[in-house]
Design a protein around this nucleic acid. Structure first.
Ligand SMILES: [Mn+2]
Ligand SMILES: [Mn+2]
Ligand SMILES: [Mn+2]
Ligand SMILES: [Mn+2]
Lengths: 257, 257
DNA sequence: CCCTATTTTTAGATCAGTCTAATAAATTTG
DNA sequence: CAAATTTATTAGACTGATCTAAAAATAGGG
């Protein structure tokens, strides 16, 4: 009964990347307009117009000309699947093959389209079902459920104590820099002051005694959790069951999608 | 000096597969004719004619119309590189992710084009620089050197004692069957008789007491090493330093390519 | 050496994904 | 609100990889 209701419907890696970008834009509560999608994928606007029409035709998204795209249930499902693969692969590269957190993204961007479901389930088990990737981003589970991300953008934060939750930027240079100054997931830091007029933030990471001055723009890709205020560099994290960047706040209130 | 003599010259995964097939055919001492290449890749002859002309133009092979292709130094180098990737990946899937030897080929066929050089060198080290893949085939080293394969095809062998060196067939069904009857690399066996008129071979693998009757055709993909004749199922292997299917006869007389 | 069968190449098309340049719609602004 | 600016679509073209059908070359058998 209901035999072919779930067709395999395999798509190209190009399509997978389009879906992932639309998901990312939607997650940022923005409109997935032609030009925004084009910028993320580094292709011409005209190319995107075309592709969005095709994706609408195969039911992976809605598309209103002069407005943009919205994922359908099926499109979102596929996008989340790729996101899961991407992040699991990043974690695998980091933990098993010793890649730096600034190296994983590029490789995962290709492998996410090439590995089989078996590969994914094997590395998932090997890593003991990780909940975050090396950048602190949540890994959707095998059913496509995503942890609610209730963190705060550093650019919006008031002076005080925080721990780094995730870094949403894949530029290797930038990540290497953050690593150097001691900013990575689970690092505690105190935000000491924010200069006015789009000025930089003065941070004190718990490691490295030197204060770090971070541009406002850069701070937009760092997300933090407020720490019950205590003298900086002392309070323990909520839990954090393991090694590495795994902050491990378990899926309290994990919601669909 | 001689700065750009080694251009990166990246090719598509399609081209990589063409080169690999031509290499395989040349290794079998056959002529890489249009139709033979087409059969290996499961594409139309016309497609191959076209591609061979393109590959000649970019200097990866020689192509004589109505004759076929011959790899150039550069083409062979690329082909061997992919072969190395393929076999290392197979070994990785088998040893680290627990794939069966009948499952590795298909996955490696895709991943060989997708992983980076870093990935390859990391798994190479993780596996402690393996010399054979799960089917017993030699893994070219990082410089592209290939071990000389001085084994004997079972279809050509006289009755006597042997050990399985490699199985050159990637059909999952067939490999699963061999596994079931206890035929895998490093298995010792006695070839008891060969029925005349293209008849089957009667084999006694050291494991499993039952004799195995193997079609002549099937026996063509099994390669063996003669054992200094001794009562079957007793003689130790030349060495065999490790677990699994790693027969480990080290590169005595490793030759170029 | 001719005729037939096989192999290979040529010709012409298709499909996915991309581009640039031209046009059109939507939005912002004086 | 009309003009200017920005955003998006349309039109036309290209590349890589593939196919089918027709034509041509080669190889074998008498
Ligand atoms: Mn990708
Ligand atoms: Mn990540
Ligand atoms: Mn391949
Ligand atoms: Mn193999």
């Amino acid at each position: 009964m209901a035999a072919d209701s779930q067709k395999k419907a395999t798509v190209s890696s190009t399509v997978e990347d389009y879906l992932k970008v639309v998901l990312k834009i939607e997650d940022m509560k923005q409109r997935a307009s032609t030009s925004r999608v084009a910028r993320h994928l580094d292709v011409a606007d005209a190319t995107v117009t075309d592709m969005l029409r095709k994706l609408k035709k195969v039911g992976l998204l809605e598309y209103k000309p002069y407005y943009g795209a919205t994922l359908t249930r099926k499109g979102r499902q596929m996008a989340v699947r790729i996101l899961r693969r991407h992040r699991l692969l990043e974690m695998f590269l980091h933990q098993v093959l010793g890649y730096g957190w600034e190296q994983v993204h590029q490789e995962a961007e290709r492998l996410e389209h090439a590995v089989s479901d078996l590969f994914i389930s094997r590395i998932d088990a090997l890593l003991d079902f990780p909940a975050q990737d090396p950048h602190g981003e949540a890994i959707p589970d095998a059913r496509g459920f995503r942890q609610v991300e209730d963190d705060l953008c550093l650019s919006e934060a008031e002076p005080g104590s925080y721990s780094v939750r995730k870094v949403t930027n894949s530029d290797p240079e930038f990540l290497a820099y953050l690593d150097k100054v001691g900013l990575r997931p689970a690092t505690r830091l105190s935000l000491q002051e924010k200069a006015p007029f789009q000025g930089p933030l003065k941070l004190l990471p718990e490691s490295g005694r030197e204060p770090v001055y971070l541009g406002l723009e850069a701070s937009r890709s760092i997300f933090v959790l407020p720490l019950k205020d205590r003298p900086p560099a002392s309070a323990p994290l909520p839990e954090g069951r393991a090694s590495q960047g795994s902050v491990g706040r378990p899926g309290r209130g994990a919601g669909k999608e």
